[in-house]
Measured scan of single mutants.
Amino acid sequence: SKTSNTIRVFLPNKQRTVVNVRNGMSLHDCLMKALKVRG
């Protein structure tokens, strides 16, 4: 089974995003990807 960790990230202006960290990806990469999608 694939394991994925879901991390809630609290952003300024009362924004919130959820990042799924996959195996083999660093938290930083996942964060940058999530913020790019939002931006």
Rank of each mutant, 00 (worst) to 15 (best):
R22P: 13
P12T: 03
N23C: 14
K36I: 06
N13S: 06
K14Q: 09
M32V: 11
R22G: 10
G24A: 15
K2R: 11
N20S: 09
R22F: 05
L11R: 01
N23K: 13
M32S: 08
M32A: 10
K14W: 08
T3P: 15
C30S: 14
V19T: 05
M32T: 12
T6A: 05
N13K: 06
V9M: 00
D29H: 10
V9T: 08
V19G: 02
R22L: 10
V9A: 14
H28S: 10
S1N: 14
V19I: 13
N23T: 11
K33L: 08
T6V: 15
F10S: 06
N13I: 03
P12S: 01
V19E: 08
V21F: 08
K33T: 02
K33N: 00
A34G: 12
D29E: 07
H28R: 12
K2V: 06
T3N: 06
R8P: 01
K14M: 10
S1P: 15
P12M: 08
L35R: 00
K14S: 08
C30R: 02
T3A: 13
C30G: 07
N5S: 15
S26G: 04
G39R: 04
R38Y: 08
T6M: 13
K14T: 05
S26H: 08
M25K: 15
V18G: 01
T17F: 08
S1C: 15
H28Q: 13
K36S: 14
S26D: 04
H28P: 02
L27V: 14
V9L: 03
V37G: 01
L35V: 03
K36T: 07
S26I: 11
L11Q: 00
S26N: 09
K33Q: 03
A34E: 04
T6P: 03
M25E: 05
N13D: 07
R22S: 05
M32K: 12
V21S: 08
M25L: 15
I7N: 01
K2G: 11
Q15L: 00
N5H: 12
H28D: 12
Q15P: 02
L11P: 00
N23D: 12
L31V: 06
R8L: 06
C30I: 08
K2M: 13
G24S: 15
K14I: 04
I7V: 07
G39D: 13
V19A: 10
N23S: 13
F10V: 02
V19F: 10
S4T: 15
N5Y: 07
L27K: 05
R8S: 03
I7T: 02
N13H: 10
L27P: 00
S1R: 13
T6S: 07
V19D: 01
N5G: 08
N5T: 14
P12A: 02
N23I: 10
I7M: 06
R16P: 01
D29Y: 09
K36M: 09
K14E: 10
G24C: 13
F10H: 10
M25V: 15
P12Q: 03
R38Q: 08
F10C: 02
L35M: 14
G39A: 06
N13T: 05
S1L: 13
K33E: 02
T3I: 15
I7F: 07
L31R: 00
K36E: 04
Q15R: 02
R38C: 00
V21G: 06
S4I: 12
S26T: 14
T17N: 04
G24Y: 08
